[in-house]
């Protein structure tokens, strides 16, 4: 083996360790008592305790935030998908100036700084007496989910062969039936990946949730960040437990995403 290959392998090993070790470490820390955690020399062997996890799981604020997160994120994602996927199909299939502009407009929604949405939204929701409600966050998140779903689904539909759709038309399917019975099933994996990605984005979203909620509609990331302010001593064990729980849903979606994203991005190369 050449020396350079060896060095490159070492680099890859280092990068992999940089991903695996901190995550394993956090998982371990979630089961440590503060006495085991707050030591100068990190401990690998310790008596695992379930206290941190049960503290996090049994807090009412966490249960409520979990419900909020689930309801808000799934509603925003579902609405975003219903609005976004058909729109993406039109942008992919009907190439003209209007759809090109629409595509760019959707992308430009991503340019908007979150603060620039959060501040006026705060004033609007206060004015409508909807501030700190789930509905207000769902509508706000719709900007994120719909635009990302469209952006990532367009390449998925562009890949669906025109010949297949042509064949469907010859067989007497109308445009709507072609979409639902031909194009959508063919592109389903990538489209699902796009929708899953939009879920991860809003599940992880912090700034908008922080500015648009005060108590009732708080989501999980807000609660997790608040735990660092409990009392004088940062409860690191509890914090680690919260981090583990908060990270689980996106990681569960990873399997789905791995297929979807790969395909979405390898599409780019055809143009490049």
């Amino acid at each position: 083996m050449k020396l350079s290959t060896l060095l490159l392998k070492l680099l890859l090993l280092f990068a992999a360790a940089l991903v695996v070790l901190p995550l394993l470490w956090t998982l371990l820390n979630a089961f440590k008592t503060n006495a085991d955690l707050l030591v100068s020399t990190p401990k690998l062997v310790f008596q695992p305790v379930w206290d941190n996890m049960s503290y996090v799981l049994n807090r009412r604020s966490v249960a409520r935030a979990l419900t909020n997160s689930l309801i808000i994120c799934s509603s925003a994602v579902l609405l975003g998908a219903v609005l976004g996927v058909p729109a993406a199909y039109v942008i992919a299939r009907f190439k003209n100036r209007i759809t090109a502009e629409a595509r760019f407009f959707v992308l430009s929604l991503r340019f908007l700084p979150p603060v620039a949405i959060a501040i006026p939204m705060l004033v609007i929701w206060l004015g409508l007496d909807l501030y700190d409600t789930r509905l207000s966050l769902i509508v706000t998140y719709l900007i994120v989910t719909a635009s990302i779903t469209i952006w990532l689904s367009v390449p998925a539909f562009e890949r669906v062969s025109l010949h297949v759709e042509e064949a469907a038309r010859v067989d007497g399917l109308g445009p709507y039936a072609t979409f639902f019975r031909v194009a959508l099933p063919i592109a389903r994996f990538q489209v699902f990946g796009a929708i899953a990605f939009s879920f991860v984005l809003v599940w992880n979203e912090f700034l908008l949730a922080m500015m648009l909620t005060t108590s009732k509609a708080k989501t999980l990331p807000i609660i997790a960040s608040e735990m660092s302010q409990l009392g004088m001593n940062v409860p690191w064990g509890i914090l680690n437990a919260a981090v583990v729980l908060l990270s689980l849903p996106p990681l569960i979606l990873l399997g789905v995403l791995a297929g979807g994203l790969n395909a979405a991005f390898s599409k780019k190369t055809d143009q490049g």
């Binding site: 995550l23 912090f206 997790a224 990681l251 990873l254």
Partner: peptide
């Protein structure tokens, strides 16, 4: 490696920040 390298970007940024904040902690 590809699956591994996708994990960090999917983590909530709040979580990623906590993981490293504790790793950088001067005492522990």
């Amino acid at each position: 490696l590809c699956v591994l390298f996708i994990i960090p970007v999917l983590l909530p940024r709040v979580c990623a920040a906590f993981v490293w904040k504790f790793a950088f902690h001067p005492l522990y």
